[in-house]
Design a protein around this nucleic acid. Structure first.
Lengths: 364, 364
DNA sequence: CGACTTTAGCAACGCTGTTGCGTTAGGGGG
DNA sequence: CCCCCTAACGCAACAGCGTTGCTAAAGTCG
């Protein structure tokens, strides 16, 4: 865990990360644009940029000649200076992607897993795919680590899987430690939906402060991005959106309650009425908006993307008609910008974020 | 707004606030206990303590004689060194409290307001009560400011009331600026539920990381405390928990949707079935837990506290039976520790928090 | 009385962003 | 052509943060 009190190294890392965040958002930038955006003096920005250029993550990119005055030095992020690998583990497959420092997905592959696969099966498969990436791409020495996004419940801080639903070999598995041993790389374990929303946030930049990624893929869940950071909750169990009740007397859900979004939604899908399923999801999304006052809703998941237009229209309709009308209450509904790669890509970006993202201070 | 980049003054303020937070949590403390808890070196703690003693917010409080070795200097918070006033504005009354730096409520009063009161009516009433507090308590020069908690929608950052429901004179009112003019003190405006959850958090300390304050009082709402900070959402509109749907085909709600918690709950109350109303609230609370993975649920609000036991039992029952059983999934359900003062007290504590709480850095 | 333990504090230090000011690279006007 | 203005750059000195090194103080214990 990070330290609690703030010292000079925190100060330095924080300001460096701030400049990196701007570098990701803007294609190119200058000393003064960073200075204006951050409040740092131009002199301080020079020092930060010198360190980042030294590290190789930022590089000079020519000059801009103003109408009058000395030309300004232009800088840019060096996307290929760092890479991360992300894995999306679902019940039958593992999808892996290679992502660069700019958040671009450079490579992606899916591999089937045996029914009732074990942690060993998974790690063997992942190791094979990583060897393949390494053969196809020049990334040696620049690979930051591996992120794994999977269904919960799990413990993000400890890196352990608590109880993956309907998977026999997955109870109290320290997958993070196992993977670091087998792969020889730093590993970051998180819930699939949280990884997914991280991908959107990393790509969209600072304007993306309060958002949810709604995922429909053998279950309904939501990854939450609140106040500019992932929200995981006290036990890494936030986002069990599919198990919120919308119909007090509805059908019994696998979780034991009645009328969960997932139960009502799945019943509609099984009845062949995807439109109705999407409507129910829309009601749930508006519930989320009322509770959390989000500005962005991102739709994702294989089962949803198969009927992308139906779901998107239904959710937009629900937001338009069920949220109290007010000009100041703006909500944007979009489809995941990375399609089915979003979870794996987000897992990879969490690794980059741990090293190049804006650091926080551990609570007391 | 605060600055974005971190500099030495941020570093200093942050570590000072860290020590203040410990001082609030512990009755007395020593240099080394702070050092252990924060990771600061004892020498650094000495410097911080010297500054805080100079400010008057912390004072030496004797020595502790260990079995062997030099006696350790003991310190304590000086509660009466700073005060803040909080106001809870509801549709017919304003309740005001005086709070000290330790978060203790020293004085409280309720004043009726005219039907359809105007901003001027409110501020006149508040000014009168503040004069009364000043006459009864020696607080001159130590009054930090005034916090106002009221129903929304409002804009917390701008200090304006957007549209208080069912109140004629309250559309786009810059109440914060008005109040600062009339009262001559810094003013902090926020939603009632957010103020309420701040009160609980300020009193409970660092262990209170993810929580909701459920309030039933002419409406149903929830104040959210996520990741150790208040969650207000993109438009200060988070917490409209009462307007989440739990019964797809339920009764029409004033907000336009069907089967909102508030509509179903109020219908049960009107039918004289408070037990059923509490059950519905319990379903909503479990929905919140599934979505946000909270560790604490605090129950508050005049209408709820009138039947405190019924509500508390129903919510605890819902948490016990409807949340998937797991030993690691711990949730604590409590009644507000400040009773009906919680909103006003929280509003006051937000003022103290702005000055003595742990500072954050503004986002990019 | 001396050895040891625990706490305290002075002083020098390394590092951060800041400030002051001179330098550089380009116009444009006389 | 020269001088002045503008805008960006960067060296050097600076203030202030927590850290480190070391000494002193105030107790207990043998």
């Amino acid at each position: 865990m990070h330290r609690i009190a703030a010292d000079l190294t925190f100060l330095r890392d924080y300001n460096e990360a701030l400049v990196m965040a701007l570098a990701r958002t803007w294609r190119t930038f200058e000393r003064n644009t960073v200075s204006d955006a951050t409040g740092l003096t131009p002199q301080a920005v020079s020092k930060v940029l010198a360190r980042l250029v030294e590290e190789g993550v930022v590089a000079p990119a020519g000059v801009r000649r103003p109408a009058i005055g000395k030309p300004a030095g232009v800088y840019e992020l060096v996307p290929h200076s760092r890479y991360a690998i992300g894995a999306h583990v679902s019940r039958r497959t593992v999808r892996m992607v290679l992502v660069d420092l700019a958040g671009t997905v450079l490579w992606s592959a899916v591999m089937a897993l045996p029914a009732d696969f074990t942690p060993g099966d998974l790690l063997d498969g992942m190791a094979g795919l990583i060897d393949k990436v390494r053969a196809e791409h020049e990334i040696d020495g620049r690979l930051t680590g591996v992120g794994i996004g999977m269904i919960g419940p799990l413990d993000h801080a400890a890196g352990t899987v608590r109880d993956a639903h309907r998977m026999r070999h997955w109870h109290d598995i320290p997958l993070g430690a196992f993977a670091e041993d087998v792969l020889g790389l730093p590993v970051h374990l998180d819930k699939d939906v949280t990884a997914g929303v991280t991908a959107e946030a990393w790509r969209r930049g600072a304007a993306f402060r309060d958002a949810a990624l709604i995922m429909v893929e053998s279950g309904v869940g939501a990854g939450l991005w609140l106040g500019g950071a992932a929200h995981r909750g006290s036990h890494t169990n936030a986002g069990e959106f599919g198990h919120t009740v919308v119909a007090l007397d509805g059908p019994r859900c696998a979780c034991g309650r009645r009328g969960c979004i997932e139960a009502v939604h799945d019943a509609a899908v099984e009845a062949g009425d995807v439109g109705r399923a999407a409507e129910v999801l829309g009601v749930g999304v508006v519930n989320l908006l009322q509770t959390l006052d989000l500005e962005h809703v991102v739709l994702a998941g294989a089962d949803l993307l198969r009927h992308a237009k139906v779901y998107r229209d239904a959710v937009e309709e629900a937001v338009r008609t069920q949220v109290p009308r007010a000009d100041w209450l703006t909500v944007e509904v979009t489809l995941s910008s990375l399609g089915e790669d979003v979870i794996a890509a987000g897992a990879a970006m969490q690794v980059l974020d741990a090293r190049y993202g804006i650091p926080g201070l551990a609570p007391l």
